[in-house]
Deep mutational scan, measured.
Amino acid sequence: MTFKAIINGKTLKGETTTEAVDAATAEKVFKQYFNDNGLDGEWTYDDATKTFTVTE
């Protein structure tokens, strides 16, 4: 399945996608990506659209 992340950061904005077997796996991938890029913020997840949003 394809999962999307919308990034609303102070220094980084945009979208990225990942292929994962479930939402928990996708969340781990996205959180690692955000940690690697120095992002920290509020997380939400919309199961209907398979979209994570992080707002810094």
Rank of each mutant, 00 (worst) to 15 (best):
M1E: 12
M1D: 09
M1I: 14
M1L: 13
M1H: 13
M1V: 12
M1S: 12
T2E: 08
T2Q: 11
T2M: 11
T2K: 12
F3Y: 11
F3K: 01
F3C: 05
F3R: 00
F3W: 04
K4R: 12
K4I: 13
K4G: 04
K4Y: 14
A5D: 04
A5M: 15
A5N: 02
A5C: 15
A5K: 02
A5P: 03
I6T: 06
I6A: 03
I6C: 08
I6R: 04
I7E: 02
I7K: 00
I7Q: 03
I7H: 14
I7P: 00
I7R: 02
N8S: 06
N8K: 13
N8V: 13
N8Q: 12
N8I: 14
N8R: 08
N8Y: 13
G9E: 04
G9W: 13
G9D: 03
G9T: 14
K10T: 13
K10V: 14
K10Q: 12
K10C: 14
K10Y: 10
K10H: 13
K10D: 07
T11W: 14
T11A: 07
T11P: 07
T11H: 12
T11G: 11
L12P: 06
L12G: 10
L12K: 07
K13W: 13
K13N: 09
K13I: 09
G14D: 06
G14M: 15
E15T: 11
E15Y: 12
E15A: 08
E15D: 05
E15K: 04
E15R: 03
T16N: 05
T16E: 05
T16S: 08
T16R: 13
T17C: 12
T17Y: 14
T17Q: 08
T17R: 07
T17W: 14
T18G: 02
E19M: 12
E19Y: 14
E19L: 14
E19P: 03
E19K: 12
A20Q: 06
A20D: 01
A20H: 02
A20W: 02
A20V: 03
A20R: 02
A20P: 01
A20N: 03
V21Y: 08
V21C: 10
V21T: 11
V21R: 09
V21N: 09
D22H: 02
D22G: 03
D22V: 01
A23K: 13
A23C: 09
A23N: 03
A24Q: 10
A24T: 08
A24N: 07
A24E: 10
A24P: 08
A24S: 09
T25G: 07
T25W: 06
T25H: 11
T25R: 05
A26H: 01
A26T: 00
A26D: 03
A26K: 00
A26S: 01
A26Q: 00
E27V: 07
E27T: 03
E27F: 15
E27K: 08
K28E: 08
K28T: 08
K28S: 09
K28Y: 07
K28L: 10
V29Y: 15
V29A: 09
V29P: 01
V29W: 14
V29C: 13
V29I: 14
V29N: 08
F30H: 00
F30I: 02
F30S: 00
F30R: 00
K31H: 06
K31A: 06
Q32C: 06
Q32F: 05
Q32R: 10
Q32M: 09
Y33G: 01
Y33K: 05
Y33W: 14
Y33N: 04
F34Y: 09
F34T: 11
N35K: 15
N35L: 14
N35T: 13
N35E: 14
N35W: 14
N35P: 03
N35D: 08
D36Q: 13
D36K: 10
D36S: 08
D36A: 12
D36N: 10
D36V: 10
D36L: 12
N37M: 15
N37T: 10
N37F: 15
N37R: 14
N37E: 09
N37Q: 14
N37A: 13
G38Q: 07
G38F: 10
G38M: 09
G38D: 08
G38P: 03
G38Y: 06
L39T: 05
L39Q: 04
L39M: 11
L39Y: 13
L39H: 04
L39E: 03
L39V: 13
D40W: 14
D40F: 14
D40T: 13
D40Q: 13
G41E: 04
G41S: 06
G41I: 08
G41M: 14
G41K: 05
G41H: 09
G41A: 10
E42H: 10
E42K: 10
E42T: 12
E42Y: 10
W43K: 00
W43N: 00
T44Q: 08
T44W: 07
T44F: 09
T44P: 01
T44N: 08
Y45R: 00
Y45T: 00
Y45M: 00
Y45W: 02
Y45A: 00
D46I: 02
D46A: 02
D46G: 00
D46T: 02
D47T: 06
D47V: 07
D47W: 07
D47G: 06
D47M: 04
A48D: 12
A48G: 11
A48C: 07
A48T: 10
T49E: 04
T49W: 03
T49Q: 04
T49A: 06
T49P: 00
T49L: 05
T49R: 06
K50T: 02
K50V: 01
T51D: 00
T51V: 05
T51N: 01
T51H: 01
F52Q: 00
F52D: 00
F52M: 01
F52W: 05
T53L: 08
T53A: 03
T53W: 11
T53N: 05
T53G: 02
V54Y: 13
V54M: 10
T55L: 07
T55E: 09
T55I: 10
T55Q: 08
T55D: 04
T55A: 04
T55N: 08
T55W: 12
T55K: 07
E56P: 12
E56Q: 12
E56A: 09
E56M: 13
